[in-house]
Every structure is written in C-alpha cells, then in structure tokens.
Write a protein that binds this DNA or RNA. Sequence first.
DNA 1: ATGAAAGCGCTAACAT
DNA 2: ATGTTAGCGCTTTCAT
Lengths: 334, 334
Amino acid sequence: MADVARRAEVSIKTVSRVVNGEPGVSDELAERVREAARQLNYRPNHTASVLRKRDGRSMSIGLIVEDVVNPFFAAIHRGLEAAAMDGGYSVLTGSVLDSTTRERELVETFSARRVDGLVVSPNDDLVETLALERRNGVVVVYIDRVPGRLDADAVVSDNRAGARAGVEHLLASGHRRVAMVGDTHTIHTAEERFLGYVEAHAAHGVPLDPTLQARDVHGGDAATEAAGRILDLADPPTALFTAQNMLTVGAVRALRARGLQHQVALVGFDDFLLSDLLDPPVTVVAQDPDEIGRIAAERLMARIEGDMSPPQVHVVPTTLLPRGSGELPPPAAG
Amino acid sequence: MADVARRAEVSIKTVSRVVNGEPGVSDELAERVREAARQLNYRPNHTASVLRKRDGRSMSIGLIVEDVVNPFFAAIHRGLEAAAMDGGYSVLTGSVLDSTTRERELVETFSARRVDGLVVSPNDDLVETLALERRNGVVVVYIDRVPGRLDADAVVSDNRAGARAGVEHLLASGHRRVAMVGDTHTIHTAEERFLGYVEAHAAHGVPLDPTLQARDVHGGDAATEAAGRILDLADPPTALFTAQNMLTVGAVRALRARGLQHQVALVGFDDFLLSDLLDPPVTVVAQDPDEIGRIAAERLMARIEGDMSPPQVHVVPTTLLPRGSGELPPPAAG
DNA sequence: ATGAAAGCGCTAACAT
DNA sequence: ATGTTAGCGCTTTCAT
C-alpha cells in the first residue's frame, strides 16, 4: 500500500480510502491511485486489515465435517459455501475422518486463524472444546446433530419424523417384521431415527422385535454384514429400514448377495446418487443437505453480526421418495 | 499475548518464545507462562504472526474446483486436505459452478487472504489471471487440466492412455461401431480422452464415424439426450464410450429408457459410487482422485518451500475395471 | 536467560 | 479533501 501511495504521490490513507471505497477522495486522485495499484499489481492485504479494524472480523468461517467425500456433507458444503460467499465470507474446510485428535486440531487451527464462526457436527466431547473457543468470541452452529445441552443454534433434518414416515410406509403396506440397521447410538441423529422407527411401530400397534434391530453399525461393510445376519435369521424380516446412506448401500449389497432384492422391501434414510437406477430403484427418505448448509451459514452470519436471540434448533423437513424397493409387498400371509 | 505476559509477570517476548517453542527460557518462567495462557484461554493469533514474520507465509492454500459435490473433486479435496494438514497447511475451498466471474472472485479473495498457493483446474482465461497473482509470489498447481503454456506444475490422470485402453477393450472384443460422448472440447482433459478414442481406432484399423461422436456435451441431462440421439440412428453403435462420470450416468439413463442396457456395451471414464451395483454393472476406467489431490498438495508445498525446478506434468495412471457393461459382445455379425 | 523497541500492512482517530 | 500519528498482535533486532 505504501508503494502505491508513493507511486501515486498521495498519502497512504488516501490509498486506503480508494481501496475501500470510502468517500472523500477527488476523482482525480482516485484515478491516480487506481492506476498505480494496477501498475504495481497491488492486492489488498485482507489479514492486515482485519488485524487493525475495530471489530476485527476476519470474514471467514470454518466447516468441520466427518468426511467431505460423503455426498451428504459435500452438499452441505456447497450450500454453506454459496450462502457464505453471498455474505462476503470465505470458507475453511476440514474432514475429521473419525479422529478425535484431528477434530481438536482443526478447531485449534481455525481458531488461531481467527475464523469468525464454526459450523460443526459435534460429539459431546467437542462441545466442551468449543465452549472455550466461544468464550473468545467464536460463534458456533451445529449441523446434523443436536448436542445434549443446547448452547448454540443447530440445523438438522427432521430425523424422527422422517424415519417414522419411512417405517410407516412399510407398515402401512402390510409389513409386520421390519428390521432396522442404524448408526452408532451415541450419535444424536441415529438415536432420533431409531425413535422414529419405534414410534411408527407404536402407531401401527406392531410389537418391536429386538432381534431385528442392528444398532451401532458404522460404515457400508459393517452394514452388509449386519443386514446379512438379520436376513439369515430363522424368522427373517420382510422389510428393512436403513438409517443412513452408507448403511443403505451396505444393505443393498446384502440383499443382492442373497438374491432377495425383489422379495424384501427396503427404505433408506438419506438419498444417494443413482438410487433411482438400481434394480429395484431404492425408496428413500431424502434429506435436503444443500438447505442445511444454507441455513447454517445464515444463522452463523446473523450471530456473527450480533443476533443475540436464544439458541434454536432449525428443523429441515425430509421427503419420502417411493421408487420401488419400499413398495414391495410382504409375502402373502402363510 | 500482552495479557498473558502481564499475568505471568514476564515480557511479551518471553511469552512469544514459549508459545513458539523457542529456546532460551527457563523452565520456571515457561511454566508460569503456560499457566497464565491456560487461565486466560489464550489462542495465538496466527494471522498477526504471519504479518510480522520474515518470510510471511500464511501456511494456507486455496482449492478452486468446479463443484465440491462432484465425487471426483470431493475426493481430490480429501487427498489434498490430508497431505496439506500433514504439512501444516490449512485449506480454503471454493466451487466455481460454471461461473467465470466467480472463478475470478475466488482467486482475488484467496489472494487477498494471502494464501501461499492455489490448486485450480484452469481454463485458458484463468491462466492469465493467475499469472498476475504468481508475480506476487502465489504458487500455483493445476489439476485435471494442462494449460496451453505450461508455466506451473500440473497433476492429471493419464487421460489419453486411459481412454485408449477403455476403447481398445471394446474394439478387442469385436465392436466396430463405438460411439463417444465427450465433454466440452476446449477442456484439455476432454480433448485428451478424445485423442485416446481416436488412437484406439487407429491401432485396430477401425475407421472413425463422425456421426457416432457427440462432443461438447456438458452434464448428465445433456448426455442422456446426446446418447439417445446416437442410439436412435438408423445405423446405431454397438458400444458407447463416455468420457466423464456425469456423462456415463446420463448414458446409462438413455440405455435404460430404450431397454438397451444389455445389448449395447458401455465403458465410462471415471468411476462412480455404486457403478458396481447397476444392472449390468458398469465397466469404467477409474481415476485416482485421492492421489491427484495428494500429489498436488505435495508439489505445491515443495514449490512454496522454494523448489525452483522446471514445471512438470505429473501423470497419475488409470485402471480399467471390467464389471459387465463393457464386456457385452457385439451382436453376431449379420 | 530476559527484555525494550521498532515495524509488518493496514485502519481509527484526529488533524489540517 | 487530504494527511499524520498511533497501534492491532506479533516477531525481529539488538540490548542487557
């Protein structure tokens, strides 16, 4: 900036005014400054500007997700990025990849870089860590999970209602033995989906059979195995409900391996690419991850800009997409 | 930092030494400083540190891709992030989403934030913009495309050899009319894959038929339409080669719509989730995007740290994965 | 082993 | 309308 000032033969402050579009500079000087900046290929140093500014906002936010390759999180990322960019914010990203250490590292790194806010899917450990950052003025919005003590906004799918709708869809067409494959039960989201499964059964007066429930199943391979075990039972289910996209894919493989994909019905939670091209096409309860990302960004920006209203849970509705696998009828009663 | 110094009753410089693990502080003082930092919940201000430091490296890099939701770029993102984190770098991300304006904005934003380097898949316009940034010391690595004038490292799949292998796979099993659906021809990558298609034909002495070539096809819907048009020809192809993952999916839809998925062979470039679960399973030429991301990060970090060797193209091999769709034989000669 | 002072690129506060 | 000076949080340089 000093170089530009020298070249344009004005004071540094005048350059600052022109660069930031502040009033009080004559057209002539402004043009001289712009020309000098062009010649020197000048780029404002945003970080230096932040350092000096009164409110010190860095106009950047951090997104911490389990894995950017998971299409659900990738879509959240895109929704968030679009909204953030509209608001003038940049996005730092990090994948946790099941490593608690890495999670902490990411929070610390982003914090040292003075992000104005963080969007995270928290486990209860992390909520503690985040509490410290928040005392330093970092704003937090939770996605995909609602922490035990709600100390900040959270944006989640309507997990319970969505799961309930999916399972009721099966029960309504006559299924009485509906198995469930669910993720780690300490994850709030997984628990909610399980409750939806339970509620659907209660609503239809169908008793629950614990042998049909595989919980704490994490990842596609584990799901293939778990679904397989249940399908191989002496008294097997006539339908499956899988509570997460990777689990659904795992279950499809298990059904295929047994040639049961046209006999046993399947409803999955969370849509995935090509689900409509499988045989049969897979019925899913679709989430709206783009929207989750967008809302998270907007809540975060509102908070950064001073919104002090009490923390809220923002619930994004889900949509049941009947495609075939969920409409297979139960075998004629024997 | 001043607060910590006051609390520990030492000078600012001593705090700085402790925080940065520099020698020359007695154990006793160091412990006092650490305790004060803990009590005050102190976080070093990385940006201030960068501003003052001699070499002024921000230890951050920017990744600019077309769309973080595309699994190919998502995987690159993950590979890049993992390697960057190992090297102590943070990652800023941005999706271009087919907008040239946005592309420029992202470059400027990242530049103003003083990233040390950028990883981008460039179009020729952008290469100009980037040249300016590079004069300011920003290092660039290209991915997925090789620009006309090679002024920086590039990391790409072996597009030509991969495409050639895929098409030869079809020709070797007797196909003589192999159609091609390819992306915008100004994209270097698309052009290379087309050349692979041409080379395969030359190697097998099979003449090219321009009516079987749909180029400049962008996105899944366009591919469905383009593949459909070719399949509806009076003298249709017996096999398809699709040069990008979205195009492959589009072609699958076109085949399905006509009930031809078991008659017309299909080989796609770039693998995609569930390609093995479709009916028939889709034969693909798989890329290794994780590896592309990793190598890009490593080249970038080496350059940032002063590697001045001439720019190089790093070619990542591809793998033909025969799964079924590519092994459908041509109909018995009539 | 410890610290005081200057200054990175910029903006706030106050001149002129 | 334009400029001067101080200082953001930190590291460098140079003392002690």
